[in-house]
Amino acid sequence: MTQPSSNDKNIYLPKVAILDRVQDEIQEVKTFFWHFENPADQEEFKKFRPGQFAQVSIFSQGEFPASLPPSPTEKETFFTVRTVGSVTSGLHQLKAGDKFAVRGPYGNGFPMEQYYGRNLVFVAGGIGLIPLRSCIIYALANRDRYKKIQVFYGSRSPRELMYTQNLREWEKIEGFEFYTTVDRGDADWKGNVGVVGSLFKKPDVKVPVENTTAFVCGPPIMFRFVIKDLKDMGFHDRDIVSTLERYMKCGVGKCGHCCIGMAYVCTDGPVFTYEQIKKLGEDI
């Protein structure tokens, strides 16, 4: 089905998407692989940048903003979503072949070109890995453009590590430092136990500070502590970037729900440097 051309300019009109398959990640979190019904829409959508988001519609339930975990360098498009409210539960009930609707991509995304020639440090906590996954895969696909790449990933327990297939691959890649930690280990866990910040202090870990951009994403409490750790290491506020989440209805700077201080998270964000976040003047 092709949309009439007049509809293309309608910023509120979602386009029909088909669910290909569903993959379990961790408890309450699943990854949904999908594609647009109209190939032209798919082509257009694939121009998204890491860190952008899309609005997912389950008709009769509503719409919610979802980070885009895939990198534009990958073939498939998918969302990783936790059931928290009525619309996300609606998405979780869908099966392969079911239809829903998507519009986007929206937001500024990470300016990955600006980071060419720099070291990249990713710090993710729990499902904070979802938006950062896009940048990590993008950086790996453009490996020669970046210097050192480090990923620090922490979760509550070994069973709550996401994207396990990616994690196994990342562990093997040379010239790419990947560290995981869990808050509480179990019998089989041989890795680090502790908060994600504890990884910085390990003797074999050397975090570059000069010419480095740090990506931080995770729950508010983890965010606060990681920022403190990074600041202690000597990171400048402008070299720390994060992506914020807010209640959103439109995604295009009209509905007013996501406005923090001087910024609309949907159009001015969701990616902000810590320098900008401090100036917003409201709670994160």
């Binding site: 008709f59 509503g62 509905c255 729900h257």
Partner: peptide, 23 residues
């Protein structure tokens, strides 16, 4: 004032309408 919220409402068994309301 410009803010609005968005909601889906069932019209009948088949059709759902999406509306925006002042918030």
């Amino acid at each position: 004032c410009t803010c609005f919220t968005v909601a889906d409402r069932k019209v009948d068994g088949k059709v759902v309408e999406r509306v925006r309301l002042w918030d």
